[in-house]
Design a protein around this nucleic acid. Structure first.
Ligand SMILES: NC(=O)c1ccc[n+]([C@@H]2O[C@H](COP(=O)([O-])OP(=O)(O)OC[C@H]3O[C@@H](n4cnc5c(N)ncnc54)[C@H](O)[C@@H]3O)[C@@H](O)[C@H]2O)c1
Ligand SMILES: NC(=O)c1ccc[n+]([C@@H]2O[C@H](COP(=O)([O-])OP(=O)(O)OC[C@H]3O[C@@H](n4cnc5c(N)ncnc54)[C@H](O)[C@@H]3O)[C@@H](O)[C@H]2O)c1
Lengths: 214, 214
DNA sequence: GTAACGCTGTTACGCTTTTCACAATCAGTA
DNA sequence: TACTGATTGTGAAAAGCGTAACAGCGTTAC
């Protein structure tokens, strides 16, 4: 079983490779790519062991082929559909960002309990009422969801999502979700992140540390 | 030196304690609090060793006093000022969220390069032009900053912030910032987070893992 | 009063993740 | 061809982190 830290870095490597590809770079050394990713060359090579693509000594990695290998490793062939629940301040920002991106992940639907938002199209994505969640998800076979509702509603939304077959949840609400163990939950807790930054960046002493992997 | 993982959990514990306090709960056992935080009792007790507050056997922890102890440990006495750079879709959502919160961290100013946003007040926070950054920061002695500008501008903004004395940066741009080693940077990379969820939540096999600490 | 119970603080252990180090490999060169 | 110099893949060591276990202590029951 491959570590989730490695998965996160592979995703980052791929994005950096795409940038290099756009710049016309053909090949790259582990040292260069690792520096861009904020890691070490050894770690990058170790991560790449998982995907099975081998570079050549003295030539490094072929940018396009390595990006393809990571894609084959990370993405599911037909792509995956993503749904967003909670079209508030944060939800709208997320839609504006992810709706435009072209990738294997595609945001296909948004949901909100507010009747004023239902049936509107926001950043190219239609907003459905909550009670149509299971119906819409069945049609889309979405396995990934983003939760951007207030804390009070998050647990209920998570349960509805898992009932509808969602297997992975990106949760922005400041609550730890109680879900079945075969559902993967990733929390993004901005308040905690900001307090961490404040602690290590505090003015007085606060001996600084190396930036940890996000 | 205390681990950044521990700092993150302490911040989470404190938030949970505040909820309990609001519910009128007087004391709590490590087992209960740990479950709320998504961790184990042993880990919670280990974390609490750092803050120096001791519970009593058979009575657990006094909610209010433990919260105070964590506050004394995490916060700097006079509070800390936070500035936000980049008042776009995400920046506005962040302002709406953090500007209202009452805590030791207070968002005192926002900055943007867009002249249409400058001098407007957004969610109670005034937006300044970029060239007044060092001046405003000197007056506020802000040590913490949030970067929510597009990737292309992030490195330049980070350099301007560090020149102005910022010691901690919460970075939402999908770029690894190159900064002086005595500046703490925390990256929140939502694209990577979403791809991680997609990977572990992929429909076919994907044996699921325990949720890792965010 | 005292024995039994339950929870905490802390030390020791084990696992996960990162780093180190080096043999194997390949291009260039004379 | 044989040699040099640089880079990769990977086993082994190190570090970091979480988990388990247990001694100590306060509380309760009788
Ligand atoms: N910058 C930010 O906005 C920010 C930062 C950190 C954390 N968060 C967290 O993200 C979440 C959303 O924040 P926000 O600022 O967008 O809030 P918001 O109030 O602007 O939006 C919440 C949206 O969710 C909808 N909603 C509420 N309950 C629902 C339910 N049970 N089912 C479906 N939809 C429901 C509301 O109609 C609203 O549109 C919150 O949990 C918040 O704590 C937000
Ligand atoms: N949901 C999201 O919006 C989302 C999700 C993931 C990542 N991000 C990242 O967050 C950042 C901001 O996203 P956004 O959606 O708010 O973008 P946006 O385009 O809506 O807003 C960017 C803002 O930054 C300002 N700006 C641009 N260059 C600047 C500079 N050099 N100095 C100061 N201000 C500058 C612009 O005027 C604009 O107001 C981006 O790096 C994006 O990749 C956003």
């Amino acid at each position: 079983m491959v570590s989730d830290k490695t998965i996160a870095r592979l995703s980052l490597y791929r994005r950096l490779l795409k940038v290099l590809e756009g710049e016309g770079v053909r090949s790259v050394f582990s040292q260069q790519l690792a520096t861009m990713a904020g890691g070490t060359a050894a770690q990058l090579r170790r991560d790449l062991m998982e995907v099975g693509y081998s570079g050549t000594p003295n030539n490094g990695y072929e940018v396009a082929r390595l990006a393809d290998s990571i894609r084959d490793f990370l993405d599911v062939p037909g792509g995956q559909s993503v749904v967003l629940v909670g079209v508030g301040n944060l939800g709208k920002a997320l839609l504006s960002y992810f709706a435009t991106r072209r990738s294997s992940l595609q945001v296909v639907a948004a949901f909100d309990s507010d009747p004023y938002k239902v049936n509107r199209v926001i950043h190219g994505c239609r907003c459905y009422p909550m009670d149509s969640l299971s119906e819409v998800l069945k049609g889309q076979t979405a396995t990934v969801a983003v939760i951007a509702v207030p804390a009070a509603g998050a647990q209920g939304v998570a349960e509805a999502l898992t009932r509808a077959g969602v297997r992975g949840i990106l949760n922005f609400a400041p609550v730890r979700l109680r879900v079945s163990p075969n559902v993967y939950v990733e929390d993004i807790d901005m308040t905690v992140a900001l307090e961490k930054v404040a602690y290590f960046g505090r003015p007085i002493a606060g001996r600084t540390r190396k930036e940890p992997p996000a």
